[in-house]
Every structure is written in structure tokens, then in C-alpha cells.
């Protein structure tokens, strides 16, 4: 085990911690949504500072490894990929924060029928499993697992597309409370965004392991 191996190992462990942290943030924001738990939503906002601090820590690690060890080949790709994955994870954290803000703004429980029609919990489960897939893929250099994320993103996109029509039909009902519905569309978009960010993370893992650039490719899997 070289000194560089140890540094890269630490970087990988810190990224896994970041995965776990943003996954927890997303889970709490969804629990807050389901139960209209304002305190839990506030906790997500408070913990966002930890996500930001972790992001800065990993950025600094990438910078130090590049400057001090001059990594090349697969090591260089790993550091580059980590740098970008870190940024995508922080954005997933932002999505959880955005969901929590919507909950606090609405200040009342969302209509359970609307949650069901929008398949919001299904969306969350897919998004969460995408984070799980990427975490496993990074831990085990498993690009098949990373590729599984692309199909799940297609499912999320499809649910997201249907959401606009569903929300529109709720808004057109008599005496509809518009603000919670607008907040709800914002929540759907944020979960869909988690899917996009997870796809980006998968691309980075594939770049690191296989040296293949999938960015902007239509056929990824």
C-alpha cells in the first residue's frame, strides 16, 4: 500500500460518507413531507451546513492529492471523478433542502391523494435506490451497477412528465389551494433533479473505472 493509495482510500471513504449524508438528508425531507413534520424539515435545513462543510473538505483533499502526488492514469481519473461526484452530491443535498423549504412554506399537510397520484413516494424510492447503486458502484468499481442508474433515470423522467398534467387538473378544481400545488410541482422537479445528478455521478464512475466518456451521449447503457 503506497502513501498515494492511502490518500485515495481516504478520499473514497469520505465520498461514501458524503453519499450517506445526502441520502439521509433526502430521506428526512421525504419523511417530513409525508408527516408534515416541520421540525424535521428544519433539521434538514440545519444539516445542510454539514453537507457544505463535507463538500469543501473533499474538494481540498482532491486539490492536495493533485498538487502533492501528481496522480496519473486511473488515479488521476479517480481524483477528477471524485471532484465532480462531490459537487453532484452537494447538489443532491441542495435538492433535499429545497424540498424541506417547500414543506415549511406550505405550512399544512399535503393532500395524500395528490401524493399518490403523483407517485411521489415511488419517485423518492427510485431516486434513493439510484444513490445506493452509485455508492455501491464506487465502493466496488462496479460499472454494471453504475449503468443500472440510467434506466432508473428514464423512469423518473416519465413520472415527472406526467406530474404537470396531474397538478394542472388539481389546480383547475374548484376552491383549489394553489400555493401547496405549486410547491408540490417544485418538489417533484427536485426529485427528478436527484435522478439527473445520479446519472451524472454514474458517468463519472464509468469514466474513472473504464476511461469512457459518456457525457452528452444519448445511449449510455
Amino acid at each position: 500500500m503506497t502513501h498515494l493509495d492511502n490518500e485515495l482510500g481516504d478520499l473514497r471513504n469520505n465520498l461514501i460518507e458524503m453519499f450517506l449524508l445526502v441520502q439521509k438528508q433526502l430521506r428526512k425531507s421525504m419523511q417530513a413531507l409525508e408527516a408534515n413534520d416541520q421540525n424535521l424539515a428544519r433539521e434538514v435545513l440545519f444539516n445542510e451546513r454539514r453537507v457544505n462543510a463535507e463538500e469543501l473538505k473533499i474538494d481540498r483533499e482532491c486539490e492536495n492529492i493533485t498538487a502533492l502526488f501528481n496522480p496519473v492514469a486511473i488515479d488521476l481519473r479517480f481524483v477528477f471523478a471524485s471532484f465532480k461526484i462531490n459537487s453532484h452530491l452537494e447538489s443532491i443535498g441542495d435538492s433535499a433542502k429545497g424540498i424541506s423549504k417547500c414543506i415549511l412554506e406550505s405550512n399544512s399537510k399535503f393532500d395524500p391523494d395528490l401524493l399518490r397520484d403523483l407517485q411521489l413516494l415511488k419517485m423518492y424510492e427510485i431516486a434513493s435506490s439510484m444513490i445506493e447503486d452509485n455508492m455501491y458502484a464506487l465502493q466496488h468499481d462496479d460499472t454494471n451497477r453504475a449503468r443500472a442508474v440510467f434506466n432508473k433515470d428514464v423512469q423518473l423522467d416519465s413520472i415527472n412528465r406526467d406530474a404537470t398534467g396531474i397538478i394542472a387538473s388539481y389546480i383547475s378544481k374548484e376552491n383549489a389551494a394553489v400555493m401547496p400545488l405549486l410547491n408540490m410541482i417544485s418538489i417533484v422537479r427536485r426529485i427528478e433533479r436527484v435522478g439527473d445528478l445520479s446519472s451524472n455521478i454514474s458517468e463519472e464512475i464509468i469514466f474513472y473505472v473504464e476511461a469512457k466518456v459518456l457525457k452528452h451521449e444519448k445511449e449510455k447503457s
Binding site: V72, A73, I74, L76, R77, A211
Partner: peptide
């Protein structure tokens, strides 16, 4: 060679 060597020994 320094970004994506083909041979494992080179890497």
C-alpha cells in the same frame, strides 16, 4: 500513456 494506458504493467 499518462491518462489511459492500455497495458496494466504500464499503468
Amino acid at each position: 500513456i499518462f491518462t489511459n494506458p492500455k497495458n496494466e504493467k504500464t499503468q
